[in-house]
């Protein structure tokens, strides 16, 4: 298993190179540049700026320079956040997004799985319909609607929780953004869990377990769950990568200094280095999470072979 993991990590290097190259050339072929603004700069200044950032060279040369620096851990200065390097921006913002995202994932797994199991065990009853109805609502209401609603109810009308910001950094400040981030995930996880459970509960080995006279709780925990949660695991891998890299909507609404906003702002401002930084962060996480999913699969299903 270890050699498999190592091999997968080595395989990730060319994957990441392709991702980096594709985004670099795509971004540079998009019209506009980091120093285009409504106020036209004097040509001399623009030429100086471009020379300072190597933008006067051919694109392939720029790419070679960028790659060379990046391989040495230097992701360059941000074009729009003056006096900050991309590494500084991401390393200060990422912990905030990570904390938020991991809390949301934990919440989604605990509540989503519980609800999904309940719904599957009481299939086609009121419990099932209530849970699935809630899940449908959770999936369809966008977070830019859900987040202000939560703020309005719990922050303003009830005055229970802070409306925005990290405040003194206590958990109270994270409750609303985490809940807003987790709600759609709870919905998706509960649907996936229910689907997996319903399928496995119909399988022959569960029938055998019933014929053996095992109590319901053992049939669920020992004979059903591991097989039923496989789809949830496959979903969670990429979903975690997405969640811990922040959500621009949630971070804006709750005024949190995560890295979610850099994805959008970087692209809009043509902040080439910042975009590349976010792409590399997200890409590495996706590669890592997919590897984790495959390893967890092996733990959950002994039929999975690594070779």
């Amino acid at each position: 298993m270890l050699s498999y993991a190592v091999r997968r990590l080595l395989e990730a290097i060319p994957t990441l190179l392709v991702i980096v190259a594709l985004s670099f050339f795509l971004m540079h072929s998009a019209p506009g540049g980091p120093f285009d603004s409504e106020r036209v700069l004097p040509p001399e200044i623009e030429a100086n700026l471009k020379a300072a950032y190597n933008l006067d060279k051919p694109v392939w040369q720029q790419f070679a320079i960028y790659l060379g620096n990046a391989l040495q851990g230097d992701f360059g200065p941000s074009f729009t956040y003056k006096d900050f390097t991309v590494s500084e921006l991401i390393s200060t913002g990422f912990p905030v997004s990570l904390k938020l995202g991991l809390s949301a994932v934990t919440l989604a797994v605990i509540i989503g799985c519980t609800l999904g199991i309940l719904a599957a065990m009481r299939q086609n009853t009121k419990t099932d319909y209530t849970v699935m109805g809630f899940a449908m609502v959770g999936i369809t209401i966008p977070n830019f609607v859900m987040a202000p609603l939560l703020t309005l109810i719990f922050g303003i009308y009830l005055g229970l929780l802070p409306v925005a910001g990290l405040g003194d950094g206590s958990i109270r400040n994270l409750v609303l953004p985490v809940v807003a981030l987790a709600l759609p995930q709870i919905a998706i996880v509960s649907r996936l869990t229910r689907g997996g459970m319903v399928e496995v509960l119909r399988s022959n080995f569960v029938r055998t377990a019933h014929a053996k006279g095992l109590p319901e709780h053992l049939i669920i925990t020992r004979h059903t769950l591991r097989a039923a949660l496989l789809p949830v695991v496959s979903y969670l891998g990429p979903a975690i990568a997405g969640l811990v890299t922040g959500s621009v909507v949630i971070e804006q609404i709750f005024g949190l200094p995560g890295i979610g906003r850099y994805f959008v702002q970087g692209a809009i401002n043509r902040d080439y280095t910042l975009v590349m930084g976010t792409v590399i962060t997200y890409g590495s996480l996706i590669v890592l999470m997919n590897l984790l999913v495959d390893l967890v699969y092996g733990l959950m299903d002994p039929r999975v072979r690594y070779d």
Binding site: N204, R207, T208, H223, R226, D301
Partner: peptide, 13 residues
Amino acid sequence: IFQDSMTGLTPHL
């Protein structure tokens, strides 16, 4: 005991 011995045992136990 059931017909389908291939699927009648829990695969992960």
